[in-house]
Design a protein around this nucleic acid. Sequence first.
DNA 1: CGCGTGTTTGAACAAGTTCAACCGGCGTGG
DNA 2: CCACGCCGGTTGAACTTGTTCAAACACGCG
Lengths: 233, 233
Amino acid sequence: MDNCNHGNCHHCNTNHKSCVSLVPIFNHLEDNQMNEIVETIKPGKYKKGEIIYSAGDSSDSLYIVNMGRIKISRLSESGKEQLVRILEVGDFTGELALFSESTHESYAQAMEYTEVCMINRRDLQNFLIRYPSISLKILSEFSSRLEKSERQTTRVSTEKVETRIALFLAECVDKNKSMEFTLPMSKKDLASYLGTTPETISRKLTDFEDAGYIKQKTARKMLILDLEGMVSV
Amino acid sequence: MDNCNHGNCHHCNTNHKSCVSLVPIFNHLEDNQMNEIVETIKPGKYKKGEIIYSAGDSSDSLYIVNMGRIKISRLSESGKEQLVRILEVGDFTGELALFSESTHESYAQAMEYTEVCMINRRDLQNFLIRYPSISLKILSEFSSRLEKSERQTTRVSTEKVETRIALFLAECVDKNKSMEFTLPMSKKDLASYLGTTPETISRKLTDFEDAGYIKQKTARKMLILDLEGMVSV
DNA sequence: CGCGTGTTTGAACAAGTTCAACCGGCGTGG
DNA sequence: CCACGCCGGTTGAACTTGTTCAAACACGCG
């Protein structure tokens, strides 16, 4: 904020400090260590819908979300695409290319106006060696991502669509700590994420509504009426 | 080997050195550093079929496979189980419990007589701080696991069973560098891994055979006749 | 206001699961 | 050493689930 002397700080590209001081992987460092990192950061700004990187790109930097939201999708061998996860402020991506030399297998797209901070591989590896605690943070993040990813695989492999939707809604309740919330993505994207089609999502949600488990206030706004009942289908 | 002065070294529990000097996460260290790690290691031996840890266990150690093979499975919310991955010599598991306090969501079972080396959380975290290069190795392993796991999710979500089987066989060819190989697991387990049923696996494989893509020499022995044709179904 | 994309609904269709029966190899215990 | 039993694998047929395609709709954004 300090070195931002005009209107909207969100659009002030000299303000990289927040990237570093806000995100979990760095915010435990000493001030002078953080400053050192701030020095090496390059900012990036993307309009809604803009592609940040594509499958096949030889990425060599870590992207940290400073503002906005990013959608990460993969293409399957036969060309169909799947939404893998959504990055919120403080999340990062680009890991694959950081620890192996390979290219991206996924692509990243801004879901709204988004600002990121980029750290290139060489710089990051330096910091990892000098400040081992950063590695511990990233390891912790990785292990939780791994956990989530494997859980998702198991769900898609073993649960029927209905159950997957119910579990997803239950997680939204959890995250928002409220029975009323807005879906974090379109139903189309949700279908892609859950490994089904928009049609099926639509149908199952009206089924849930008919059964009295939920109420769809608008396309995205949900009110859960009977969580227990819904997840135990 | 040196400090093993009786019969079968496989059953010699004073020989922990190989765990450390063989596995990728440690084998780049200096001798004295390795010795330090060897000191803290506890060995574990498991008969075929034995459970190494179960879902719900509050694990607090990293398991490194010294010999044998371990099957990692998860239980879905509704109780169905899925094979997540198979650990070979040099692979490790237990990561979840290492960087968070939580309990295991998966369980591990020895597929044959298996020996592991265990390092507890406290010791490992110490080494990670003192020898940052270990973190880099683990990060690299994690990122490749993450990649694989996400690829698997995408496959299960978007590809039909036939394609998943074909891709799996193609990977076996790749790994064995030969058109002839033995399946790394039973067809029952394969079904669980690919998110389908043994019946379907059986049927699709005979379909492949009828189409002239493969030849099943025995239950586990496969010969790929037309890789191109098979994967482009 | 109008276009485009996301959403809903219907009906036919495809894919894979389920259940049940049967086969065969392997290990165990008599 | 043989017989039995168990588990993995195979096959058939009915059944369930979810997809696909097509059409109509609606909401939001320019």
